[in-house]
């Protein structure tokens, strides 16, 4: 008669432990995936073969160059905008006091 609640408690305890372990597994899988991703992005990885390393580094530089080119286009546009702003301001009449 008395063993029934004890068994019940043990059962729920093992459930908790089981779920905690489950969460640990999920976390481990996720951490492993993230680690793999960042590891792939690391160009200094010495475990990769030389040709893969060179190729990865070159690809990274190509990506950076491509991003820089995008930025340079945007900066060019911004400078054009600034030049137009100077022209517009110098030609503006709001600060003209000749007819006051």
């Amino acid at each position: 008669m008395d063993t029934e609640p004890v068994l019940q408690e043990e059962k729920s305890m093992s459930k908790v432990v089981f779920w905690l372990l489950g969460l640990l597994v999920v976390g481990a899988i996720f951490a492993a995936a993230a680690f793999m991703y960042y590891r792939n992005g690391d160009t200094d990885n010495s475990n990769d073969s030389v040709s893969t390393e060179q190729s990865t580094t070159k690809n990274d530089i190509n990506t950076e160059i491509s991003q820089s080119e995008t930025d340079l286009t945007a900066l060019g546009n911004e400078l054009d905008q600034e030049l137009a702003e100077i022209d517009e301001s110098l030609a503006s009449t709001e600060d003209d006091t000749s007819d006051l």
Partner: peptide, 24 residues
């Protein structure tokens, strides 16, 4: 006041240009 401040003619482009040049 207008001649002393020149907000539209000089100040606007100077503020905008200063920030933009710094950003570049």
């Amino acid at each position: 006041a207008i001649e002393k401040t020149r907000v539209f003619m000089y100040i606007n482009p100077a503020i905008s240009g200063l920030c933009r040049a710094g950003k570049i």
